[in-house]
Design a protein around this nucleic acid. Structure first.
Length: 234
DNA sequence: GCGACAG
DNA sequence: ATCTTGTCGC
């Protein structure tokens, strides 16, 4: 597993970075969503000490039956040999191939995708959520648990409070630091593809249940890391 | 040269 | 991300 090659392409890190710069120009940050009925959550986990990459995709129906109570329409898991080590800024080359494998197993094409990671809040404005959204040609939102780049203040204490995440000498707004739950470290939300920051925030807040992570990402995260599976024989 | 660094 | 027990809190 040479670290100098990425994804299915034979790319060196320098070439991968050049590719990110080119693809970033195709990322749309203006809203272009149709009617949303199915929202997919995507996340990646690992098995066997990292040798196997495990991608999970969960599809939830919108709107929820009650605030925070979503119906799981479909959920799939795709496993494959891990092809890349983790390199900050190049996460998509490690996770997108597996994520695409999971999407290939879905019987439906979701209307919106939430990814565990950054969207345009990335050094070259092409985080894993943007890369996947671009590849699938679907509206996508990045929901990360920590910061990759950018500056920000402390968001207010109430659920839904947020403060902009900025970067560069011109203080470009690349995302938002969102308080998804009282008393818990905030989330880093950013547009992945075909959505504005305001819309991204709207959907993330709308998908919040009782936990820090929005339901799509929380359920995918749980499935990817194999939690919530041993609880079948009560 | 010295930090920072999604998952 | 993952390795891991108990423990604090609602």
């Amino acid at each position: 597993m040479p670290s100098v090659f990425l994804h299915d392409w034979n790319l060196s890190p320098a070439e991968a970075i050049a590719l990110q710069k080119r693809l970033a120009g195709r990322v749309e940050r203006e809203d272009r969503l149709g009617e949303v009925r199915h929202i997919a959550g995507v996340d990646i986990g690992f098995e066997q000490g990292g040798a196997i990459t495990r991608a999970a995709a969960v599809v939830l129906a919108w709107p929820p039956r009650a605030p925070g109570a979503f119906e799981v329409v479909e959920q799939v898991v795709h496993r494959e040999p891990t092809r890349m080590p983790y390199i900050p800024g190049l996460l998509s080359f490690r996770e997108v191939p597996a994520a695409l494998g999971a999407f290939g197993q879905l019987s439906r094409r979701p209307d919106l995708v939430m990814v565990d990671g950054q969207g345009v809040a990335h050094p070259r404005r092409l985080g894993v959520a943007s890369h996947l959204g671009l590849w699938l040609d679907l509206p996508a939102i990045g929901v990360a648990k920590s910061r990759l780049c950018g500056r920000h203040g402390e968001p207010g204490p109430a659920r839904g409070d947020w403060t902009p995440l900025t970067d560069g000498p011109d203080d470009e707004v690349i995302g938002a630091v969102l308080r998804s739950r009282v008393g818990v470290k905030p989330l880093f939300v950013s547009p992945g593809h075909r959505v504005s920051l305001a819309t991204a925030l709207r959907w993330v807040v709308g998908c919040l249940g009782r936990t820090k992570l929005p339901e799509p990402t929380r359920l995918a995260d749980r499935l990817a890391s194999r939690r919530g599976q041993a609880a079948n024989f009560s």
